[in-house]
């Protein structure tokens, strides 16, 4: 049973680069979306608030796998282009989905910064932008850390879905290996789970660390 393990690992690992690149790109994209959407929802302008609310609630209200399939067919329609690579569709879908979740984290952290901080910076005659950049965000960022850690693990878990739209990640190679060695099924998927867990370990460590930083006392 175990003699095939090196074979499986050698075969599956071909997709390692794609899995990690999708994870990194999707994570970066969703962090950007989180701040853009999170701050837009705190905007003074009603239209901007409304549009971002629709985006956030749509992507939070439907599931990632549905969005992934939907975007696969909707992107050609929405952007008027016929060919979009599966890699990009995966990154866009995961980024938009978790960007929506994380924007709520950004929004609630900004709101939970003590009101006295805002009042003090108004008293110091700061502009709205200075207030956000110099006073509120540095304090809010600390509060966001644990949630960003948690969601990063969720993003990593989400990347396994991209094989369903034909991206050649480790799950794709695992499926191909299994289809020609049916009796190895359990081993193949167990190895895949372990690979994902190994990638997740540093994230687990970082999110624990982020939790400690967030807990350290300060005006909240």
């Amino acid at each position: 049973m175990f003699e095939s393990v090196p074979d499986i690992i050698r075969y599956v690992i071909q997709g390692f680069g794609v899995t990690t690149s999708i994870f990194l790109a999707a994570a970066a994209f969703s962090y950007v979306m989180a701040f853009v959407a999170g701050l837009c929802r705190l905007s003074n302008i009603t239209i901007i608030r409304g549009i971002t609310a629709v985006y956030v609630e749509f992507f939070r209200g439907t599931s990632l796998i549905v969005q992934l399939f939907w975007l696969q067919y909707a992107i050609p329609m929405l952007l008027g282009i016929n060919i979009a690579s599966a890699w990009w569709i995966g990154v866009i879908a995961i980024g938009l989905n978790y960007g929506a979740y994380l924007s709520e984290v950004v929004r609630t952290s900004v709101i939970s910064v003590d009101k006295g901080q805002t009042e003090a910076s108004i008293a110091l005659n700061m502009t709205r932008f200075q207030r956000m950049r110099l006073v509120i965000l540095p304090q809010a960022l600390r509060l966001m850390l644990p949630e960003f850690g948690n969601y990063s693990i969720q993003i990593l878990k989400g990347t396994s879905l991209v094989s369903l739209i034909g991206v050649t990640d480790i799950l794709y190679f695992g499926d191909v290996y299994r289809s020609s060695n049916l009796s190895e099924g359990a081993m193949v998927y167990f190895i895949l789970l372990i690979i994902y867990f190994i990638i997740a370990l540093p994230l687990i460590y970082l999110s624990k660390k982020g939790e400690k930083i967030a807990k350290k006392g300060a005006a909240t």
């Binding site: 990593l156 099924g185 359990a186």
Partner: peptide, 20 residues
């Protein structure tokens, strides 16, 4: 381990893997 690995692969593990 279960918490931080993809549920999709866990489904495949149960459906395609365990009976084998």
């Amino acid at each position: 381990f279960i918490r931080s690995t993809p549920p999709l692969i866990q489904i495949f593990f149960v459906y395609y893997g365990l009976p084998m």
